[in-house]
Design a protein around this nucleic acid. Structure first.
Length: 325
DNA sequence: CACTTGACCTGTCCGC
DNA sequence: TGCGGACAGGTCAAGT
């Protein structure tokens, strides 16, 4: 489920690979793939060069020399995978962060983290998730001069890719209403708390998932940051002490940054720009760990439903704030 | 108006 | 073995 760290990881990969490449070919057999686009999509894509790759919230933006941009949301199962000679070179330079030596929430004596199969059972994918492309989930194919190719795959067809003038991207309805970037340098604890309080009667998990409050947080990082801050996801915002809200701000940022270092979280589908898995799943504390012991207190992690989402919680480590303070 | 829930979509898993 | 149904979750529309 691509959230901020996953989209950021894809962005960093594509930013190493795409700028300067000229688009020679564009194929898509998926009308939904280009809603609200100029009729003649290819006219503004084929023949132009990639100038930049950016991210805003969970949205990835590829700027072209034609003055147009490809704006993509991966939603649940979307992938942007680059195949070409440059991929091997970039992969060779890459040093993945493994183990949990830099994870402040797990004692270093526990390093390295247990293998995925050990923690999540034999059914968990351990091999590369991308085979020969295109496959049946491929929606858009962008061919570059020189032979490299970018594939937009989306098994569940929730994602989208739009073409629009670069100058109009920021004004786009979807982007305009996004809250601030949680890792932005000017995003303060006071900002965060003020924005939480715009939904003071909601449960904290629903508010973290609200893209208007903070951009980029999804189910994984909502659960993980609430665990780290010791707040039960069903807690009502107005009942959570200020100091705890401040702790959530700190933990949320820390976890997002750590996950980016790990290349994001691969639970089922997510892969980076080179088709590789992310490693954050190895160090999650609660997400998908229902019925397993809490790594801090040993109690069983339970799975409940909060804000209509599967929610993982340690009821001993995470306090439920319901009354008014 | 504030907030919650259901629909969208398909692959996977579970129970019968 | 096969099949039906529940489930996964980001976002928006519809509902309370």
């Amino acid at each position: 489920m691509p959230e901020l760290p996953e989209v950021e990881t894809v962005k960093r990969g594509l930013k190493e690979l795409l700028p300067g490449l000229e688009i020679a070919k564009l194929d898509f057999n998926w009308p939904k793939g280009f809603p609200n686009s100029p009729t003649n999509v290819k006219k503004f894509v084929v023949g132009s060069k990639v100038q930049d790759v950016r991210r805003r919230g969970k949205v990835l933006i590829i700027d072209l020399s034609s003055g147009y941009s490809l704006v993509t949301h991966l939603k649940m199962t979307g992938q942007l995978v680059f195949v070409g000679k440059a991929a091997k070179q970039v992969m060779g330079n890459r040093k993945w962060v493994m183990g949990n030596a830099d994870d402040p929430l797990v004692p270093s004596s526990q390093s390295p983290a247990p293998a995925l199969a050990e923690r999540f059972g034999a059914g968990h994918p351990t091999k590369s998730l991308v085979g020969e492309l295109p496959d049946k989930s491929t929606r858009v194919i962008i061919g570059f001069k020189g032979g490299a190719t970018l594939f937009f795959n989306d098994q569940r067809k929730f994602g989208w890719m739009k073409l629009m003038p670069t100058s109009e991207v920021e004004a786009m309805e979807f982007i305009k209403k996004l809250g601030p970037e949680p890792l932005g340098l000017d995003f303060s604890s006071a900002d965060f708390i003020a924005r939480l309080l715009t939904r003071k009667n909601s449960n904290i998990k629903a508010v973290l998932l609200d893209q208007k409050v903070v951009a980029g947080v999804g189910n994984i990082y909502a659960d993980e940051s609430l665990f780290a801050a010791g707040i039960h996801p069903s807690s009502i915002v107005s009942a959570i002490p200020k100091s705890k809200q401040g702790q959530l701000y700190t933990n949320l940022k820390m976890i997002l940054e750590l996950s980016i270092k790990k290349g994001g979280t691969t639970d089922k589908n997510y892969v980076d720009a080179l088709g590789q898995r992310g490693n954050f799943m190895e160090i999650v504390k609660v997400f998908r760990r229902e019925k397993q012991p809490c790594l801090v207190c040993g109690c069983e992690i339970i799975k409940i439903r909060v804000a209509g989402r599967g929610t993982h919680v340690c009821t001993k480590c995470q306090k439920l704030y319901k009354g008014s303070t």
